[in-house]
């Protein structure tokens, strides 16, 4: 009968702790009399536990600094904005700090294959600076295109959203 599917759907919410108490009671009652769903439940519970085993480490300080550096660059480029990251007013010393951070970051990233560090980019090189400049220009272009990112719910739609469900 179709009700098995309903109970199985409930089982997922039960395992994640989201099933209301009265439905949980009905579910337990069903499992007592349905070995097929009981077995399914055991597998679902084990699946939930297995998924929990996939844990990730903390994000490294180096990658945080890369973003801060990019934002710093952005701030210094976009000083025409009234509100800017880091300070409301132009402060040349920040460029010096940004340069120092960049050098430190380049040094850190040049260490061979440390786990947890994204090694694809090498901030501090001319190529990378040009690349970041390009990205920021692209971002400005994107902003001018007005993709609606400033409006929650109005982000750029992708074909899978809304139609793939």
């Amino acid at each position: 009968m179709n009700s098995h599917r309903v109970y199985r759907q409930w089982l997922i919410w039960y395992v994640s702790g989201e099933l209301p108490v009265n439905q949980a009671r009905a579910l337990r009652h069903h499992l007592d009399s349905c070995p097929v769903c009981a077995r399914w439940f055991e597998e679902q519970l084990e699946l939930w536990r297995m998924l929990s085993e996939w844990r990730l480490p903390e994000v490294t300080v180096a990658s945080n600094r890369e973003l801060e550096w990019r934002l710093e660059l952005e701030r210094s480029r976009g000083s025409s904005h009234a509100v800017a990251y880091g300070a409301a007013e132009w402060a040349p010393w920040r460029l010096v700090v940004a340069a120092a951070v960049t050098c430190a970051l380049a040094l850190v990233l040049s260490l061979p294959n440390r786990p947890g560090v994204a090694t694809r980019s090498e901030p501090g090189t001319l190529v990378e600076l040009e690349r970041i400049e390009q990205v920021l220009e692209d971002l400005e272009m994107l902003q001018q295109l007005d993709l609606g990112l400033d409006e929650p719910g109005a982000g750029p739609q992708v074909s899978t959203v809304g139609t793939g469900v």
């Binding site: 890369e66 973003l67 934002l71 994204a118 980019s121 971002l139 400033d150 929650p152 719910g153």
Partner: peptide
């Protein structure tokens, strides 16, 4: 892919940074 994850995460915050002036809380 760790490198792509880092890159895209930076992209998210750069976009938020850029969108601040037009931010309207609806959610």
């Amino acid at each position: 892919d760790p490198a792509v994850a880092e890159e895209l995460a930076q992209e998210v915050f750069l976009r938020i940074f850029h969108a601040r002036a037009r931010y309207v809380p609806k959610a």
